[in-house]
Design a protein around this nucleic acid. Structure first.
Lengths: 338, 338
DNA sequence: TTGAAAGCGTTACCAT
DNA sequence: ATGGTAACGCTTTCAA
């Protein structure tokens, strides 16, 4: 059913019906109520593409996902929670990991074809081409993570530096002196921030930084395992690990067990937890100490901030840094005697 | 830049330009080439919403995700692989788990507002309201999974029944007699199929079915742990587990270890693996025997079949059942002597 | 092979 | 408070 036909059935003009449905103030309360009821009864709903054409709004926020990210659905669920009440869709454009050229083309396409009103991007680098391009394209965008790219941009990030600094400091407090860091993909801002937090904790104690105790890579259990195994072969071996994700932590636990050591006793572990419904730190054995920040909450807030961006709030005002909790459980304990 | 302006710059009519860009045959090769090149050079791209309005096509396929599904991004990545070359977007509409009313409203909205050309739904029930509604709405849709709902519908499913039958049979071959099944959410078709495969394997040996050896629930490590723990408290306890997912298997491994038993020796485990890049059966210790089927491949094929649906292939023709591999690793071994 | 003009379904301006 | 009408940017007849 189209507007014209629907309006005719109500004995009103299309104009009035449109206004009633969109909640304009100049329509009488009585008319509005009648229109709303009849729309439900007769099943009328505006054609979204006509609306989009005439208003110039796409009614969708785009998110670009890497293909191997288990964290992604969690963030998106959060977005959905916030967007549920709005009439805004989520357009997902997956891109192959590490294919920057394809990703840049994608943004051009999204922007110039009017598919989305705004875009959310993840895992930026300090100097990020995507941010530069999106700025140039003039499409509103929010960065989940931080970048030093020298154009104004809205961002939401967690305090990765502080999180890892505190985690590392805590391990130092427990007497650990050789602490290994299994960090994220090289070159990404959050990875750099975590490296930095780690080094700061060491510096605060006047301890030297040993590059042999840091690795970089994707957040998979395999990389967690391999990194941990290779650390454990060092002599003297580290007595504590800081792991980048829950999946990494699984690999670390496995590696520690595989050499006959015990997590929480011989080896302490702290991992970063994005809070997943299907895999929880409390349930690991021993339960896993974590730095924790809800990815779902970040998704919800990101959607919210993007909406603000769309209603004209300047990007330069939107900078949000979230603290990260440190939650101590059984996987951390005093450093064993040497 | 708009069509009119772009056409003027080329000294052509909007009509010709539109035809050239859309690959109509009546445009001269020379003109087409020139138009294509200039479009890139000047950055012209048709406004997608105008195209959608005039053609009546939405240019998007909708997928509805439950909020707690770690499997989801894998399926979507697969869809994306197939859709990359087409000019079709993925519209993600998350719904709260178990909120059927909200989900049904969502479909109405998607369909009647013209946001999507087709929809893919997951985890159907034997009698599924969503299928009934989508059929009534007249919007093309594909079911990932199977249903007995009595309206024609396209579907793609894996052979859950055969997978679990074979897994169970294999354990029986190894001499196991008390085999526990940690299955999916109650009432869903794939859960029923797995239950069925399990019972068939028992029946083939003339063994009785013991309902105390089957649980149902979400695919989380916690439920895997709890179910396994409670099974292990039985006397005599089961000597083998069939687990519904990789996350479940993590919980099972943990439970077995927690009571001082050894997977692959005291307790055999087979789990279903949807193939994740970040958590692999080969890497578990002991490596995990699995029934395996790539969720990513299913996503790619689902997108493909949906595209076929859109080009007129009848839904009744689109029924695809995928076999599931059984991959034996170290987590399965002979039943221990009683 | 190319072009002119109608039309897709809605919103928003300008009247009344 | 309500209605008429132009306009959104494109595709697709119809005509040349």
């Amino acid at each position: 059913m189209k507007l014209k036909e629907f309006a005719k059935q109500l004995g009103l003009s299309p104009t009035t019906v449109s206004r009633a449905l969109s909640g304009y103030p100049e329509v009488s309360e009585k008319t509005r109520k009648r229109v709303a009821e009849e729309a439900v009864r007769l099943g009328y709903r505006p054609n979204i593409n006509a609306v989009r054409l005439v208003t110039g709004r796409a009614g969708a926020i785009g998110v670009v996902m890497g293909r191997n990210e288990f964290q992604f659905s969690e963030f998106m669920s959060g977005m959905a929670e916030r967007l549920d009440s709005e009439d805004i869709d989520i357009l997902v454009s997956p891109v192959a990991d590490h294919d920057m050229k394809a990703e840049l083309q994608l943004y051009s396409r999204l922007a110039t074809s009017g598919r989305v009103d705004a875009v959310i991007i993840h895992s930026p680098k300090p100097n990020d081409e995507r941010i530069l391009l999106l700025h140039k394209l003039g499409i509103p965008f929010l960065v989940h993570g931080r970048s030093e790219t020298n154009v104004p941009h809205a961002w939401l990030d967690i305090d990765n530096e502080g999180a890892i600094r505190r985690a590392t400091s805590h391990l130092l407090d427990l007497g650990h002196r050789r602490i290994a860091l299994i960090n994220g993909r090289d070159g990404l801002t959050f990875t750099l921030h975590r490296d930095k937090g780690y080094r700061e904790a060491l510096e605060q104690r006047g301890l030297p930084f040993d590059p042999r105790l840091v690795t970089h890579g994707q957040f998979t259990d395999e990389i967690g395992f391999r990194s941990a195994r290779s650390f454990l072969e060092q002599s003297p071996r580290p007595t504590a690990f800081v792991a980048g994700s829950m999946m990494t932590a699984l690999g670390v636990y496995r590696a520690v067990r595989s050499v006959g050591l015990v997590v929480g006793k011989d080896i302490s572990v702290i991992a970063h937890d994005d809070v997943f419904p299907y895999l929880t730190a409390d349930n690991m054995v021993p339960s896993l100490s974590t730095s924790r920040s809800s990815l779902r909450a970040a998704g919800a807030r990101s959607a919210d901030l993007t909406l603000q961006l769309l209603t004209g709030r300047p990007a330069t005002e939107i900078h949000e840094l979230w603290p990260v909790e440190l939650i101590l459980r059984e996987s951390t304990g005093p450093a064993p005697e040497a």
